Amino acid sequence: MARHFSRDLTIRQLRALAAVQQAGSVTSAAGRLHLTQPAVTLQIRNLQELAGLPLIQRTGDGMVLTDAGRSVLALTERVEAALLDCEQTLDMIAGRSGGRVSIGAVSTAKYFVPFAIAAFSRRFPKIDVSLRIGNREDIREALRGYDLDIAIMGRPPEDLQVEMRLLGKHPHVIIAASDHPLAARRKPVALAELAGEVFITREVGSGTRMLMQGFFQKNDLQPTIGMEMDSNETIKQAVIAGLGIAFISQHTVSHELADRRLVALKVPGLPLIRQWHAIRRADKVLLPPAEAMLDFLGKEGARYLPG
């Protein structure tokens, strides 16, 4: 095969050869390609010059490929398959037929984010959504490192320029077991009474822990910390077991409050309301699937928050 064959080869030449093989004549091939007969003849001639060998021969049954022509035809089929694969991949990335979205959510958001993703997936079944759950610092670091398309959290990292879509209110309460002495109170629990209670808390650095500390500092109280846990589920079970009370996201205990395994204490200043946001880095280019998810969360995310 002649030098520079692959460098100077064009897809038009390959398609002209394939059309001649399928049609049996240059005239019919020209009709298939919507070209003139001289144009197809020129493409075949240039291709043969690049190959350095005859690729077609005229017979009583029409134009047929030589051994060299069949070898080039096999190349044509592989090129067309690669082009089709590339086209389908680009369609998926662009969201025309699918794609991927990477979402990170702080652990407190795991009580509603999967339901929002499920609703999005029903609407866009060909888009794959990956969900990463972590503590506040894990998700902030992932957002800093461009690992995520979207982060679900309360406040973004202060050192990043971001775009935020409001999802809805995020209330925080103090919970106790249903048989706790304060749980039966009809009147509000005085803040001073909480100083004598043992609090089960999230780990240092978590958003909930920081919010709790801010609440007590504002009210000049120093809570007694009994245990630190990195899981809301463990905190709930510890409170139900009577090991203490807890400042916690109301969204994490909606079921337990509904069936009275836990009680939200009536405390002045509570529930403390924060906001849920869907956050993206302002300098990260989002492909259409991620843009669709961000729009979906901004418009419909609130309906999946726990009641």
Rank of each mutant, 00 (worst) to 15 (best):
L35A: 14
S97C: 06
Q57R: 15
A29Q: 00
T89F: 02
T41P: 02
P38A: 13
G60H: 10
V64M: 08
V101H: 04
R96D: 11
L73W: 05
V72I: 11
G62Q: 05
S71I: 07
T36F: 00
S102N: 04
L33S: 06
A94W: 06
Q48I: 00
A68D: 10
R78D: 06
I44L: 15
E87D: 12
A82M: 07
L90S: 03
I44Q: 08
V79I: 15
H34G: 12
A39L: 01
I44D: 09
S25R: 07
Q88V: 09
T27I: 07
E49K: 14
M63N: 03
A30Q: 09
V26T: 09
I103A: 10
G52C: 08
G69K: 08
D67G: 08
G62I: 13
L50A: 05
G99M: 10
V40P: 04
T59R: 15
T76V: 02
Q43M: 14
D91M: 07
R100G: 04
V40M: 06
R32D: 07
D85E: 15
G104E: 02
V40I: 14
R70Q: 07
G104L: 02
R70C: 02
I44M: 11
T89E: 12
S102Y: 00
G98H: 10
L90T: 03
G31C: 05
D91Y: 00
G62P: 10
G104H: 03
A81F: 05
L50H: 04
G99A: 13
N46H: 15
T89C: 01
R58C: 05
R78F: 01
E49R: 14
A94K: 04
D85L: 06
L53N: 04
N46S: 14
I56W: 03
Q37G: 01
T66S: 07
P54Y: 03
L83E: 11
D61L: 13
M92V: 02
V40Q: 03
A39F: 02
Q37W: 00
T76I: 00
E49S: 11
